[in-house]
Design a protein around this nucleic acid. Structure first.
Lengths: 224, 224
DNA sequence: CCCATGGTACGATCCCGCTCGAACCATCAT
DNA sequence: ATGATGGTTCGAGCGGGATCGTACCATGGG
């Protein structure tokens, strides 16, 4: 009778506190051993083993055995993004725990979220562009003519993006900042240009983004 | 010990099958009554009432009482976006229910979804219209001037629709196709015109839509 | 070889929460 | 008024699953 993707199964997997803690501990893309994750979740190794088996079975985790250790990581970045989306939801619904944000301060400062920029820098980027009237926040987000010109000057091939079927720009809720940053094809292209100018680079294997001191200065200067 | 947003709470809310079905039924942004949602989830009104209270309490749903009816809708589009993300995860993890899509192939080919067209034909319809630049998918879906003309030519009274309070057009996630089809008042009116031309007819008592061979040809010709 | 360590498998317990029946309240129709 | 319908509240039953103790398998080090 019921139809569609089994969203309940996935959500139920994430919905157990112990499993959610494990997933949250893995959100920076690193791999941890089963024992570490057990400690992280505050359960014994036996229960952790059961949970990890379920998460792997459900396709949320991948693992590789090295010697007598078993390293678990998020199956892919989509899982991490889904977790971020849920974190964003949770924080705006007043369901945050004592401290909001990732353990790793680098992640909170700048990271990628589906190919676009998130974290403090992502939010600051969008804020600056809105302040310059490059975007108008009317039930969503729309690019103004002046913004269009400015971004084309910056090197973004906007006409090409407009021909795609994907949405050009979209606000995406940032879970560590509880504000929106820029998503959509434009968000990705913009980060692409930033990376091309060596203002920032992605840390391989994780979602952390490191801004160079010069790059951070240049970005501030660009947006005033 | 614990940190970050309480992702487990939100995920557990979504993780119950009955609640997930309700949320999925609301993903197009429309508002449904408690009884409709109970039927959608396959539970009695009492349990549905409890679930709906929890979802509202958790900030995922909003409701407004009209007379003796209580209309529930997703609290905001962030909730819908999170649900879509989970659906995306679920479908790529092969966790779609045993059979992805309806048992009846006819349903998968064409059916009504709250008065508008869904299934393969519904997705093809929207794809064709987007390819003809009648719609632009910018954070949702918007009708272009040329699309407006074309649909008026087709017999849709668009000015009348624009006077309604309901949204004119809206993308609706097609669960069997994993792509969007056209919803909103325009989606309904368009299907109404298609039926008026005897290109298709609804099977009474079900959601199945049968296209006549001539009708399917005509539709293909209309959209190239 | 024996032992320590990381990890899993199985069983038993126990509790959360999903579910429905029955009763109750509110709104609308007549 | 009375009845019909939409929705909620309360209580009880019950099942699933989260947890841990014990036992077991692998790897690595002496």
């Amino acid at each position: 009778m019921k139809e569609g993707p089994d969203i309940a199964r996935i959500a139920a997997l994430i919905g157990d506190p112990a499993r959610a803690n494990m997933l949250a501990a893995l959100i920076d893309g690193r791999a941890l051993t089963a024992s570490e994750l057990a400690a992280e979740a505050g359960v014994t190794k036996q229960t952790a083993s059961s949970h990890l088996a379920r998460l792997s079975e459900g396709g949320l985790l991948a693992f590789e055995s090295q010697g007598r250790h078993r390293y678990f990581r998020l199956a892919d970045q989509d899982v991490g993004h889904a977790l971020e989306t849920l974190m964003g939801l949770a924080s705006t619904r007043g369901l945050s725990r004592t401290r909001t944000g990732p353990k790793d301060p680098a992640l909170r400062h700048a990271r990628v979220c589906y190919g676009h920029l998130a974290g403090e820098m992502g939010v600051a980027l969008l804020n600056g562009m809105v302040a310059r009237r490059w975007f108008k926040p009317d039930d969503g987000l729309s690019l103004t003519p002046s913004g269009r010109r400015a971004l084309i000057d910056f090197g973004v091939d906007i006409p090409a993006l407009e021909n795609l079927r994907r949405p050009l720009c979209r606000p995406c809720l940032d879970w560590s900042e509880r504000r929106h940053h820029l998503a959509g094809s434009l968000g990705e292209a913009l980060f692409d240009r930033i990376a091309a100018r060596n203002w920032a680079r992605r840390e391989k294997g994780t979602r952390v983004v490191y801004f160079t001191p010069n790059g951070e200065r240049a970005l501030v200067k660009w947006l005033g």
